[in-house]
């Protein structure tokens, strides 16, 4: 199980990386390599050249903006997990990250890599979609922002051009005083890709009415899906358990569910409803426990 031969470059800037990618359409970026290397070992991926962006200084950062935490594309998942303000500002991501692989893979795996790889069951893309985040992608042609909604196109498929480098990931933060979040997933074993995962973040006003709501499900669909209708339906009122479930079930009923050998589509659909419902309730209860501003 040895990779097919390839060339290796370690550019020192994004510009140089983009240049290398432009020159060879079969070149691939490697950052943490936690997904790409197994594919190469099995010779299911055969890049002609690896462009190693892991040590480009401008790609490894975590920045606390006023309305977002912005993370460099090659920032390691473990570094983000340890980021001081993460639990307070991005509790949903803080809750999701321990589900990403295992500690040893998070030590090498990058935030941008997980997003660019676009596994339908991956946790970081789900959080990005749920929070309506975005990424920035640079190539020799352009430097553009892609909204999470437009980014994920299907299993292992994104709107990222093959010659583009994912330079930063923007996770929007909420400023509500009464905010709660929850993340749950189900897989055969802890650390495996989820059959279904669900993420929710809920903000309440002083009366306990829902002022912001984000719900997403992963694993069930070809790409992580934000439950926009359900989220909208919950806004403005006090959360009602049955109505929440109904809104979620209605939206999930209309989704195209993935078919693979690991779990039946019926299972995925049912469990997506169950988990989405549970995370909304858990997020709501957490928000409710917080003191109003």
């Amino acid at each position: 199980m040895k990779a097919a031969p390839f060339e290796y470059s370690r550019p020192s800037s994004v510009a140089e990386a983009c240049e290398l990618l432009t020159r060879d359409e079969d070149a691939r970026i490697i950052a943490g390599g936690q997904t790409l290397v197994p594919m190469m070992a099995m010779r299911l991926a055969r890049p002609t050249r690896l462009v190693d962006i892991a040590r480009i200084p401008e790609l490894a950062f975590i920045r606390d903006d006023s309305d977002a935490i912005v993370v460099g594309g090659a920032t390691r998942q473990a570094a983000l997990e340890r980021h001081a303000s993460l639990a307070a500002r991005l509790p949903l991501l803080a809750r999701a990250l321990p589900w990403v692989g295992h500690a040893a893979t998070r030590n090498r795996g990058t935030v941008g890599g997980s997003i660019a790889n676009a596994d339908p069951a991956a946790e970081i893309p789900l959080v990005l979609v749920t929070l309506d985040g975005s990424i920035r992608a640079r190539s020799t042609r352009d430097d553009k922002v892609i909204a999470a909604d437009d980014l994920f196109e299907g299993p292992m498929a994104t709107a990222l051009a093959l010659d583009a480098c994912l330079t930063e990931v923007r996770f929007p933060t909420w400023s509500h005083a009464r905010m709660g979040s929850a993340f749950q997933e189900i897989s055969a074993r802890h650390g495996d890709f989820a059959y279904v995962s669900a993420a929710a973040q809920v903000a309440l006003d002083g009366d306990g009415k829902c002022v912001a709501c984000a719900i997403g499900v992963g694993g069930a669909t070809a790409a992580p899906t934000r439950l926009k209708a359900a989220s909208a339906a919950l806004l403005g009122g006090r959360l009602d358990d049955a109505a929440t479930r109904e809104a979620i079930a209605a939206e999930i009923a209309a989704l195209d569910i993935m078919i693979d050998p690991h779990a039946s589509p019926a299972y995925r659909r049912r469990v997506a409803v169950t988990l989405a419902h549970r995370v909304v309730i858990a997020a709501h209860d957490e928000a409710l426990s917080r003191t109003p501003a």
Partner: peptide, 24 residues
């Protein structure tokens, strides 16, 4: 396993555990 699952090749890189099979 040479595909990053079993952990038999674990080494510490800058002090943190990592799979030596997933790094060139």
């Amino acid at each position: 396993c040479e595909h990053g699952v079993c952990g038999a090749c674990t080494v510490l890189i800058d002090g943190a555990p990592a799979r030596a099979c997933l790094l060139f």
